[in-house]
Each structure stands twice: as structure tokens, then as C-alpha cells.
């Protein structure tokens, strides 16, 4: 990682690998064992990555044990705590407890399946009684990122573009 975002409103950073190294837009970025973000812009020698804690970031995720899908969103208010918010988890009979592992789901159009995001720290049933939401503690410490791993195969390449016609 060569540069952070200097503004307090965004959580993006720049890395020193680009198209000459096989990095493409929508390549997933990992650090240690957890998901860090996704490449949004790329040049010959650099790429800009948006972290999952950024306010504009949405990751389609699932609970590892039950495979229920949910949406993990970054939030500006939680950014300083280093937490993530998740929502739209179905309120079915599957028990989800704090400590449950959250990974990227198989229905995401931009993230490869099975990348580890974090652990559930809180969970509540929503007012509509149909979904649950809560907070996730990410596996990666975003304030101390130095080196990241970029997966150069994008999800679109892996699915061969056949899923392009199916619903988002």
C-alpha cells in the first residue's frame, strides 16, 4: 500500500501494482486472512482500492454455518470504531450467534466466494420481523494495513459471464 486517502470522509487507498501486473477493476483485495476491499480504478502501475469499511461499499455476504445471505455495508459513523454493519439477514429458524463467521456469498457479482470478512458481534431482529441486522467485527485491522494481496481473477471471469443475465 503506498498511499491512504487524506480525507476523513472516505476509506480508500492506493497500491503499487497495476494493469502491468495483472490487476483489473473489480479484483478482490485481501490482507492476512480477511477481505480488505475491491479495486475501483487501475492504471499501469497503481490501483485504487475501496475498503469494505468505506461508506459506499456493499458486500454480499453469508453466514458460514447456515449459508443465509446478508448485505455487509460500510458506514461512516462506524468507521472509527472499525466495525461494519450487516442487514437483510432472513429472520428464519437458523440460529446465528455472536462469534459466527461471515464470508462473501456465492451470489455476489463482484466478490469471489468464501472470502472471510469478520465475526458477528451483535445481532437484532428488525422492526419488520422479516430480517435481522447487526454489527460485524472485521478480521482485518484497517488502521495498520501495509501489504495486501490482490486476486487478479475477477468474479466475472470465473463465472464466465454466464451469470450476467441472472438477477443482481
Amino acid at each position: 500500500m503506498i498511499a491512504n486517502n487524506g480525507s476523513n470522509w472516505f476509506a480508500t487507498f492506493t497500491i503499487d501494482k497495476g494493469t502491468l501486473d495483472g490487476v483489473k477493476v473489480d479484483s478482490n483485495v485481501l490482507a492476512g486472512s480477511g477481505l480488505v476491499g475491491i479495486v475501483t480504478e487501475v492504471g499501469p502501475n497503481y490501483a485504487q482500492v475501496r475498503s469494505i469499511i468505506d461508506d459506499a461499499s456493499n458486500v454480499s455476504a453469508m453466514m458460514l454455518s447456515t449459508s443465509d445471505t446478508c448485505m455487509v455495508r460500510g458506514d461512516l459513523e462506524l468507521m472509527s470504531d472499525g466495525r461494519l454493519h450487516f442487514e437483510k439477514l432472513p429472520n428464519n429458524d437458523n440460529v446465528v450467534e455472536p462469534g459466527e463467521q461471515v464470508v462473501t456469498s456465492h451470489v455476489s457479482s463482484r466478490f469471489l466466494q468464501g472470502l472471510f470478512i469478520g465475526y458477528v458481534s451483535d445481532i437484532d431482529v428488525d422492526a419488520n420481523n422479516l430480517t435481522r441486522s447487526g454489527y460485524i467485527t472485521p478480521a482485518v485491522d484497517f488502521s495498520k494495513l501495509q501489504e495486501v494481496l490482490v486476486i487478479t481473477t475477477t468474479k466475472r471471469e470465473m463465472t464466465g459471464g454466464e451469470d450476467a443475465g441472472e438477477g443482481e
Binding site: 498511499a3 491512504n4 487524506g6 480525507s7 476523513n8 492506493t14 468507521m79 472509527s80 488502521s143
Partner: peptide, 22 residues
């Protein structure tokens, strides 16, 4: 100032807030 904001002040951030040198 731009380079300082991108790199050094990320470590010197106070309550995860950086100053705006620009």
C-alpha cells in the same frame, strides 16, 4: 502537503481523524 496527508498523517491520526493540510 498532499504527500504528507496521504502517508504520514494517517499514522498521526487522532481519534482516526486527520488534519486537512491542503
Amino acid at each position: 502537503c498532499f504527500l504528507l496527508e496521504s502517508s504520514v498523517f494517517h499514522r498521526l491520526s487522532f481519534a482516526s481523524v486527520k488534519p486537512n493540510l491542503l
